[in-house]
């Protein structure tokens, strides 16, 4: 397989107006991936499938990632005039980064026997801009896996032929794999509670005691 930089350059040349970004993985595995922008995703996918040197004909795995909103604190030295004297004062600046949901595709080529190529797509935020283009029209095998991501993370795949919940029931409203999922409080009986479960059990009993 050609290097990712080269693939990115060729895709950007072949699909006008599309912008790809290399997401570097610094861990020992070094599995770098390509972040594609939502608008041209379908065209990029078609190119990756049909290009003679790439021929990614098999999407082996599609999964979701939840990146919650983060607040990072930075301490900045600011010059201020205090009581007529200029001093350097520490000031903390809170930087809020909105979270997003991510769909990750692992592509292989059966024909040329190479891969994986890892594609990422990110939603605008975690609340209402959760639409991503479905790649099921390009790789049919994505159908159930995109349904699973929809079920567990709440990403809306536009252009998906049959976007319904697949694991949970249709009446279910939550997205259980999101980091801020609140599970139902059914800790009334935990015979061997420890660690996290023990905490939840204690909380449940405190609530029960205050209710009665």
């Amino acid at each position: 397989m050609e290097p990712l930089e080269q693939i990115i350059a060729r895709v950007e040349k072949a699909v006008p107006g599309v912008r790809l970004e290399l997401v570097v993985n610094n861990s020992p595995s070094g599995q770098h991936s390509i972040l594609i922008d939502v608008a041209g995703a379908l065209e990029v996918a078609k190119f990756l499938r049909d290009d003679a040197l790439l021929r990614f004909d098999y999407a082996s795995n599609v999964t979701g990632v939840d990146w919650p909103d983060t607040v990072s604190k930075k301490i900045v030295k600011v010059k201020q005039v205090v009581e007529g004297v200029e001093k350097e004062v520490d000031q903390t600046i809170e930087e809020k980064k909105p979270g997003y949901l991510e769909a990750v595709y692992h592509l292989y080529s059966m024909e040329l026997k190479h891969g994986p190529l890892i594609l990422r797509m990110r939603t605008g935020n975690r609340a209402e801009q959760v639409q991503l283009p479905s790649l099921t029209p390009v790789w049919r095998g994505c159908e159930f896996q995109e349904r699973e991501i929809f079920d567990l993370y709440g990403i809306q795949f536009e252009g998906h032929p049959d976007l319904r919940r697949i694991l949970m029931w249709d009446e279910f409203k939550d997205f259980p794999m999101r980091k801020d999922y609140v599970e139902p409080d059914d800790y009334e009986y935990e015979p061997t509670a420890h660690d996290e479960v023990l905490e939840k059990t204690k909380r449940h009993r405190a609530q029960e005691a205050s209710a009665t």
């Binding site: 249709d170 009446e171 409203k173 939550d174 139902p184 059914d186 009334e188 009993r205």
Partner: peptide
């Protein structure tokens, strides 16, 4: 029944009660 967050009811109190020893 399938509820919005869990099964409704989460258990049948006529059949199952949390054992007292655990409380």
């Amino acid at each position: 029944q399938f509820g919005e967050h869990d099964l409704e009811p989460p258990s049948n109190p006529a059949v199952w009660r949390p054992p007292l020893a655990a409380k």
